[in-house]
């Protein structure tokens, strides 16, 4: 088990290293010099040179890469070209909105998707199954940002149950913030819940066809007991993979949904930075997204081992 975790950890570090190299070099080939860009076209050459030195742009590529990585490891993500404030601080501020939103969305999608999938699988071919499958087809097809606009139209403007957007800030209290994040989280969760329900259903159907389910019935378990005691845990193994993948979709989805609800999250930061060519912010946010995906996959691998004893003993 420890060996398995260690092996996964090494693969995590390698993935991170390769991903960071890719990000660094893509940003490096960006045309234009950040220092000249920041100071405008009328800047004096020596001012530009001074700024270049301040930003560490005068060193070699290898040195800059190592500085960037080293900085990130110690929590220093550099200084924003446009705002002249620490990038780490900006990201933390924005993450305090985006991360809770993504987690809220994940919670909703899991709570809706998994039971719906189990429900459909145990009623295969009957009306309940058809209804769930029809709903998931629709759920997968609806763009979540469009759904967000429709929800705003209905719940915020017509019914007035929620605000049309904006975020009060955590200082105003937990439940106020949760209330403000509810509509966005529902939009985020909807397509993911549909996918989860489909995967859970097909995975459970596969397991229901396994020999050991027949063995369980032969022992005297009812169909229901067999599904819950033997089916669900085995069916959950492929579902874990999908939940892992969803983190990436939810974080990315959050960035888009924030635009609809005017939430001050990572999305706002990143689009402002792209427009301002504040590449150091872009670089850090992309690295953060990739890091979160790789980290979640690592956690999913550990979860596999917890669910499946075959993995625990193999490595």
């Amino acid at each position: 088990m420890v060996r398995y975790a260690l092996k996964r950890l090494i693969s995590l570090v390698i993935s991170l290293a390769v991903a960071s190299l890719i990000i660094f070099f893509v940003i490096e080939i960006a045309p234009g010099d950040p220092a000249s860009f920041m100071l405008g076209i009328n800047a004096q050459p020596d001012t530009v040179a001074a700024l270049r030195e301040e930003l560490g742009l005068d060193t070699s590529k290898v040195q800059r890469y190592l500085n960037w990585i080293g900085g990130m490891l110690s929590g220093d993500f550099g200084t924003s070209y446009t705002y002249r404030t620490p990038v780490a601080q900006m990201i933390t501020d924005r993450l305090s909105v985006s991360l809770p939103l993504a987690i809220y969305g994940l919670l909703l999608s899991t709570l809706i998707g998994i039971p719906a999938g189990i429900f459909a699988a145990t009623r295969r071919g009957r009306a309940g199954d058809m209804a769930v499958m029809g709903a998931t087809q629709l759920g997968v097809a609806v763009p979540n940002f469009w759904f967000a606009m429709m929800l705003v139209l209905l719940f915020a403007i017509r019914l007035g149950w929620f605000g049309a957007g904006g975020f009060p800030g955590w200082a105003k209290g937990f439940w106020v913030c949760i209330h403000a994040l509810t509509l966005p989280a529902i939009c985020l969760a909807l397509p993911q819940a549909a996918i989860l329900a489909r995967v859970m259903r097909s995975s459970l159907l596969d397991v229901l066809g396994e020999d050991f389910m027949r063995t369980a019935r032969a022992k005297g378990l009812t169909l229901r007991q067999a599904v819950w005691r033997h089916g669900v845990r085995n069916a959950f193994i492929p579902v874990l993979t999908i939940i892992g993948l969803q983190i990436a979709f939810l974080l990315a989805g959050a960035i888009i949904i924030e635009q609809v609800f005017y939430l001050p999250g990572l999305g706002r930061l990143i689009f402002q930075s792209i427009n301002a060519r504040d590449l150091i912010v872009v670089e850090s946010v992309v690295m953060l997204l990739v890091f979160s995906v790789i980290l979640v996959n690592f956690l999913v691998d550990l979860a596999y081992a917890a669910v499946d004893p075959r993995l625990r003993s193999r490595e």
């Binding site: 390698i14 993935s15 390769v18 991903a19 890719i22 990000i23 893509v26 940003i27 080939i29 960006a30 045309p31 990436a248 979709f249 974080l251 990315a252 960035i255 888009i256 990143i270 930075s273 792209i274 060519r277 590449l279 872009v282 946010v285 992309v286 997204l289 990739v290 995906v293 790789i294 996959n297």
Partner: peptide
């Protein structure tokens, strides 16, 4: 492994990176 690394980039992160540059 290459696949895994590319897969670690959320689609939006890839689009952001390309667009930024």
């Amino acid at each position: 492994r290459g696949n895994d690394v590319v897969f670690a980039f959320p689609l939006l992160a890839m689009a952001i990176l390309i667009t930024a540059v």
